[in-house]
Simulated assay, not measured.
Amino acid sequence: MVDNTLTLALEGDVSLPAFAETMRHFSNLVDALTKEVASDSEIIWEIEALQAGSALATVIGLSSQDEAVLRVVEAYDRVGNALEQRKPIPFSTNIAREAEQITKKVSNNITAVRFLTSKADHIIYGVFDPQKNIDTKTISIGTVTGRVQTITERNRLNFTMYDTIFDRSVTCYLPEKLKSRMPEIWGKVVEVTGLITREIEIGRPVSIREVTDIALVPIIKAGSYKQARGILDWKPGDEGAEVAIRRLRDANN
């Protein structure tokens, strides 16, 4: 499948004015990248997804020339990587200005911004400053548990789940071989195993790539603990549990 999506996410408590202003700079950034690296092609960028939880917006590039869209996606990835690594942005001042304006939205309420493609996450915790160099994420193989909320099969295979610990969205990218699993997992609690990108400050998972397994988590019925039984075969007339516990306790004193 063609890698033709760009995603921007804001973490924290995001107000509507802050989100709207950030989306304006995001739109300007995508437009500037398109003009700079794919000026010979016509690309229409449409909104593919909007999600709460991380104030996340995904746009998809539509064009008869897939290579042109791919050039923009790769350029967007390079911008995100430069911001994350606190390095100069390797494009025009117009592109750098729009990208830096996005990082300026990080404040007390907005804790981070994320530049995402299907291949990588770039997490930025503060205003662009090439003089500073900090780690922003960890990447490791592991498993995350959460409830699947949205599924996408249009031009890409991924789904969004909300993890059971932080209750925040986690984007999961699937290989073609797991496509058949998508219908059965919608709305279900699952365990997803793959290459997990986490925020370095609190360890929150933000995405899972190279997914190798999806396991449904069994549903435990309310009150099922009442069906629990002991390991001893009890019969009427036998001493009760509290009597046996008291007897064993007294014997040890």
Rank of each mutant, 00 (worst) to 15 (best):
D163W: 01
F128T: 02
A120K: 15
V192C: 10
R181Q: 09
E184N: 04
I139K: 14
T164H: 13
V170F: 05
T138Y: 03
I123F: 11
K179I: 03
V127T: 13
F115M: 08
D129K: 11
V192N: 07
R114S: 13
L178T: 04
W186G: 04
V144F: 03
G194E: 07
E191Y: 04
R168Y: 02
K177Q: 13
Q131N: 14
S118C: 03
G194Y: 06
E184A: 05
L116K: 15
L116Q: 15
E191H: 07
L174M: 13
T136L: 05
R181G: 01
A120G: 05
Y173Q: 09
K177M: 11
T171G: 02
T138E: 08
Y173N: 10
N158F: 13
D135C: 07
R154E: 02
A120Q: 15
W186A: 10
I202A: 00
M161S: 01
V127G: 00
T138C: 03
F166I: 01
S180A: 12
G146E: 04
K132W: 07
I139H: 12
T160I: 10
R168T: 06
N133L: 11
V190S: 09
T152R: 07
K177R: 14
F166K: 05
E191Q: 10
K132R: 13
T145F: 03
T136D: 04
I200C: 11
T160W: 06
V148Y: 00
I151N: 00
D129R: 09
T136S: 10
G187C: 07
A120W: 02
A120I: 13
T160V: 11
T143I: 02
R114K: 12
I200W: 12
I134Q: 07
I200T: 12
T197F: 01
V192G: 08
Y162W: 14
R114F: 05
K137R: 15
G142V: 14
I134G: 03
D135R: 14
V192D: 08
Q131A: 13
N158E: 06
I165D: 14
D163H: 02
C172R: 01
R198V: 00
K179G: 02
L174C: 09
D163Q: 02
D121N: 14
K119R: 15
R147T: 06
G187T: 07
V192Y: 09
